[in-house]
Simulated scan of single mutants.
Amino acid sequence: MSRQIVLDTETTGLSAAAGDRIIEIGCVELVNRKLTGNNLHLYLNPERDSHEDALKVHGISNEFLRDKPRFAEVVDTVLDYLRGAELIIHNADFDLGFLNKELELLGREPLEQHIAGVIDTLRLAKQQFPGKRNSLDALCDRLGVDNSHRTLHGALLDAELLAEVYIGLTRGQDALPIEGEEELAADGARVSIDLRQFELPVIEPNEAERLAHQAVLAELDKASGGRTLWVR
């Protein structure tokens, strides 16, 4: 079983070294590249106010966070949830830096000691789309992920969007259905389904769809430096 956690944080500012703290953690679980619905979402009291610029980004007021738990109170919950998983993070150095600083303040081991590894989707995107904007919003637009409801940054929403972006970047599938219990055997193994029992309709694309498809193929070929197999 392949377990991955798509993770995002919101913080009081940009520098953990200068004393900024985590105020929100959002995690989305993928098992065998499918959403399970087993998510983790926490607001935290950072014991300091957010910078004005950070407030404009996440919109989470200092007053809202006053009665939320401190990181020390939820550290075991976070580590137990993440343990053994491969993390998927956009600009991973930023989030890992903040998480490791929080752990350091508590005298705990770095996060890397608890997880299987990290995939940085920003690095993936830069490899696939060199020279282009690769922010989360830009990737949503490029990969057809609906982010119209994202007016402010939020850790859980951004993690959900990033899960779809990751699947798009790795060309695994176009959608992320919630995994149903009927798809799993008693021992947790996936049950194979014979697709020959289904009669699938064939829907021909219209001219606009054909042109859009050709445009996507051309963009992929350009990004790969003319090395796509279909052109060869």
Rank of each mutant, 00 (worst) to 15 (best):
M1R: 14
S2W: 04
I5A: 04
T9Q: 08
E10N: 10
E10C: 05
A17S: 12
A17P: 03
R21S: 02
I25L: 13
C27E: 10
E29L: 01
N32I: 04
L35K: 05
G37Q: 15
N38C: 11
N39H: 15
N39I: 08
L40I: 03
L42G: 05
L44Q: 06
A54Y: 02
I60F: 04
A72Q: 14
L87V: 15
H90I: 06
A116G: 10
L124V: 13
K126S: 14
Q128L: 07
Q128N: 02
Q128S: 04
G131T: 08
K132G: 00
R133D: 15
D137W: 00
D141V: 11
R142H: 12
G144W: 03
V145A: 02
V145I: 15
S148Q: 07
H153G: 04
D158A: 10
D158M: 07
A159L: 00
A163E: 01
E164D: 15
V165P: 03
I167F: 04
T170V: 06
G172K: 07
D174M: 05
P177M: 13
P177F: 12
I178K: 12
E181W: 03
E183Y: 13
D187Y: 05
V191I: 15
S192M: 05
L195N: 08
R196N: 15
E199P: 08
V202C: 09
N206I: 06
A208E: 15
E209M: 08
A215I: 03
V216T: 15
E219D: 14
L220A: 13
W230F: 09
